[in-house]
Amino acid sequence: MSQTFIQEPLDKAAPHVVPAQAVTLNVNGEDHTIQIAPWTSLLDALREYLNLTGTKKGCDHGQCGACTVLVDGKRINSCLALATVYQGKKIQTIEGLGAEDNLSPLQQAFVDHDAFQCGYCTPGQICSAQGLINEGRCKTEDEVREHMSGNLCRCGAYTNILSAVMEVLHDGNVVVDNGVLITIPVAPTKASSAE
């Protein structure tokens, strides 16, 4: 009872490829000119052509937020942006927010609160948080949770992300009630005390 499944060619016409053109992107305050065709996403332009790999690819379809960058101060998913139409706009990536030896307040708060584990969603979370602060709309824990929900974190660092964002949003004047750590000291055990 065999049947055939044929993947039909998606393009009936002969395949053609549009040549690359010079595209100038303003990233972190500097103009960069690269040779790309219109099919290059802003995310791939940053990662593969400009070696700015801080911006992450987690799904490539706008479903995770790892690729979040700021464009004219607003947070967007760079994976769904065609680079060529972002010429003339001010693009800011994680590398533009602060460097390893000169962290921005948000970056420092993420370290202090252990607001990440594997670190892969982290640049997107931080850019998103910066966008949230720029928007000036959110103040409460609930608002920040909702407006940070465009960034998935598979490690589950959400409570610490909330703490980090709230700290910077309120200049350290708000204590977030999202859980404590309690340590109960060691007690001798049966096995070791029997030794």
Partner: peptide, 20 residues
Amino acid sequence: IPVNADIHKIDVIFVEEQDD
């Protein structure tokens, strides 16, 4: 998988053990 808005208060307690 959960988003930030799904996650609320989580207390963690470590009951430490001596175990060599």
